[in-house]
Amino acid sequence: MEASTPGVTRPIRVIIADDHTIVRDGIRAVLKREAGEFEVVSEAADIPSLIREVREHKPDLLTLDLTMPGGSSLGALPACFIAHPTMAVAILTMREDPEYARQALRAGARSYVLKEAEPAELLQAFRLAVAGGNYLHPRLGALMATGEDGATDSVALSEREREVVRLIANGYTNPEIAEQLNVAERTVKTYRARAIEKLGFSSRAEITAYVRRVGLAD
């Protein structure tokens, strides 16, 4: 059954940003079933194309994967908002971690939904974002409301620090991490040093154990 967004001009123009074609196709299929409520105007598979497409198309809604090639998804949002300040952003991710959700909301996202969500939940998150509201996956919302953020292990790493730690645990070297994140190797070393200082670890084994414990492992 159609459930349009009150007070919002239709169709809602959407850019889908995810580095996996199957995910982009899935979101497109969900939106297509909504009787013209949404119009997918473009897609992006990496950060440079994301910024370029937002500048060109100025969508009402950006659905954004939290981890994409070519840079930081959240780090790209300032450039996107400069190009189109009224754009709504809905994060669609596998990262079930309150700290990631907090960082996304601080960066300007309005919705944070997991990729495991059913189509009805995705549409609710998208509609609320476009209408100026907020949506959090229920489990994340409960953790954030009660302060029971066990998944963060009481350590507030930045998005990039967490990404570097995750890649270290997956066996990547500093040069390989630099290539993955499209940054200089010295930048990787800086993030690594900051994360290790915050965590109090000195070995890859300790980092790997932490990543598994807090659910950052691939």
Rank of each mutant, 00 (worst) to 15 (best):
residue 8 V to R: 01
residue 37 E to N: 07
residue 50 L to W: 08
residue 9 T to W: 04
residue 158 S to A: 13
residue 107 A to W: 05
residue 165 V to F: 12
residue 177 I to Q: 07
residue 11 P to A: 12
residue 74 L to D: 05
residue 55 R to P: 11
residue 115 K to H: 14
residue 185 E to F: 11
residue 68 M to V: 01
residue 111 S to Y: 12
residue 63 T to S: 04
residue 128 L to Q: 13
residue 40 V to F: 12
residue 2 E to Y: 07
residue 69 P to M: 11
residue 5 T to A: 07
residue 46 D to T: 00
residue 52 R to H: 11
residue 217 A to M: 06
residue 43 E to N: 15
residue 49 S to H: 11
residue 184 A to M: 14
residue 108 G to D: 01
residue 119 P to W: 01
residue 147 G to R: 05
residue 157 L to I: 13
residue 9 T to K: 03
residue 189 K to Y: 11
residue 46 D to I: 00
residue 137 H to E: 11
residue 214 V to W: 15
residue 88 A to K: 15
residue 137 H to P: 08
residue 1 M to D: 14
residue 59 P to N: 07
residue 13 R to W: 03
residue 192 R to K: 09
residue 154 S to Q: 14
residue 214 V to T: 05
residue 19 D to P: 00
residue 164 V to N: 10
residue 116 E to K: 10
residue 148 E to Y: 08
residue 165 V to R: 02
residue 9 T to L: 15
residue 24 R to L: 09
residue 181 L to E: 14
residue 75 G to T: 10
residue 217 A to Y: 14
residue 172 Y to D: 06
residue 155 V to K: 04
residue 182 N to E: 09
residue 17 A to Y: 00
residue 68 M to Q: 15
residue 218 D to L: 03
residue 116 E to T: 08
residue 188 V to Y: 04
residue 122 L to P: 00
residue 29 A to T: 05
residue 133 G to Q: 15
residue 202 S to T: 09
residue 181 L to N: 06
residue 113 V to M: 14
residue 84 H to W: 06
residue 216 L to Y: 13
residue 53 E to H: 13
residue 53 E to F: 14
residue 189 K to I: 05
residue 73 S to M: 00
residue 139 R to A: 09
residue 90 A to F: 03
residue 205 A to Y: 12
residue 159 E to I: 13
residue 72 S to T: 02
residue 2 E to H: 07
residue 127 R to Y: 12
residue 129 A to C: 15
residue 160 R to P: 09
residue 53 E to K: 14
residue 198 K to N: 14
residue 177 I to F: 13
residue 172 Y to H: 02
residue 54 V to M: 06
residue 65 D to F: 03
residue 15 I to T: 02
residue 136 L to Q: 07
residue 34 E to W: 01
residue 195 A to D: 01
residue 46 D to Y: 01
residue 87 M to G: 07
residue 124 Q to D: 08
residue 72 S to M: 00
residue 82 I to K: 08
residue 98 P to S: 03
residue 217 A to D: 10
residue 135 Y to P: 08
residue 11 P to S: 10
residue 50 L to C: 08
residue 176 E to K: 12
residue 75 G to V: 00
residue 183 V to G: 06
residue 207 I to G: 05
residue 12 I to A: 01
residue 91 I to W: 08
